[in-house]
Amino acid sequence: MIATNATALQLAEHHDLPAPRLIAADLAGNQSGTPASLETAVAGTTNWPNSSPERLRAAGAALARLHTIPMAPREHLPFRPRPIAVDDFATDRRTGRMPTTPLLQQADALIRAHGLPEEPSVYLHGDVWPGNMLWSNHQVTAFIDWKTAGVGALGVDLSELRKQVAITFGPQAPTEVLTGYQHATGHPAPHVAYWDAVAALNTPTTCWTPTATLRRNDFLDEALRNLP
């Protein structure tokens, strides 16, 4: 993860993306005694004082900047079939390592039957949620925490953010994120329902609060209704 973070920050600087800048990396731990990296501090806060449509659209537009870079997998930036790819809660449920529910079982079966959509691969952050976005003067100054970055379909990032704001702010928030994203790109995002379901499936069966679980379920149910 440290190597991925360092590689991702180098690429972000090369493309002038909103991210910290890598100062140094000791990936083998030869100098520091453990794998380590050092990056710049970035002004801003991860606190979202409100969930206004303007703030949510700005978040979507900022995310669109990351996906302007087409890319194939490379060392330390692997293919990512889902957000936070180091977790695979769907497989944990399927193999009995975690309890499940009828909704999650149905969604898992539909997503597996649907199969991975054919889409161009782009540069991905891999863990887009409000806590990984720094704000200053109503603008996103940086995406932080790049340790699960990689390449893959843009929906991996977009739907993770949509899921996160649905859980945090309620069911209207994902639409505003999508509006901001599509306005920035100038075209519709592909396969949104599929990636929404994938993002929702990559959560624990029971989320951190009853409200979070309910909102996750509502977000997933909406995705399944729109899945071709």
Rank of each mutant, 00 (worst) to 15 (best):
I2C: 14
A8I: 01
L9W: 07
Q10S: 07
Q10P: 10
L11G: 07
H14D: 11
L17T: 04
P18G: 15
P18T: 13
R21T: 06
A24K: 15
L27G: 10
A28M: 06
Q31K: 14
S32F: 14
P35W: 15
S37Q: 12
E39P: 00
A41T: 08
W48R: 07
P49A: 08
P49H: 04
S51M: 03
R57V: 00
A58E: 13
G60W: 07
A62Q: 13
R65L: 11
R65H: 04
L66F: 05
H67S: 05
R74Q: 14
H76N: 12
H76W: 01
H76Q: 06
P81H: 07
P81N: 04
I84K: 03
A85P: 02
D87R: 09
F89R: 02
A90P: 10
D92T: 00
D92H: 09
T95S: 05
R97A: 14
T100G: 15
A107K: 06
A109R: 05
L110T: 13
L110N: 08
R112G: 04
L116R: 15
P117A: 09
E119M: 13
P120G: 11
V122T: 11
Y123Q: 06
W129H: 03
N132I: 01
M133L: 14
Q139Y: 10
T141S: 00
A142Y: 06
D145V: 10
D145L: 12
G152C: 02
D157A: 02
L158H: 12
S159C: 08
S159D: 00
E160P: 01
Q164K: 12
T168M: 05
F169D: 15
Q172S: 04
P174L: 08
V177H: 09
A184C: 02
H187G: 10
V192N: 08
Y194N: 10
A197L: 06
A197H: 11
V198F: 10
T203I: 06
T205E: 15
T206L: 04
C207W: 14
P210N: 10
R215C: 00
A223S: 07
L227C: 03
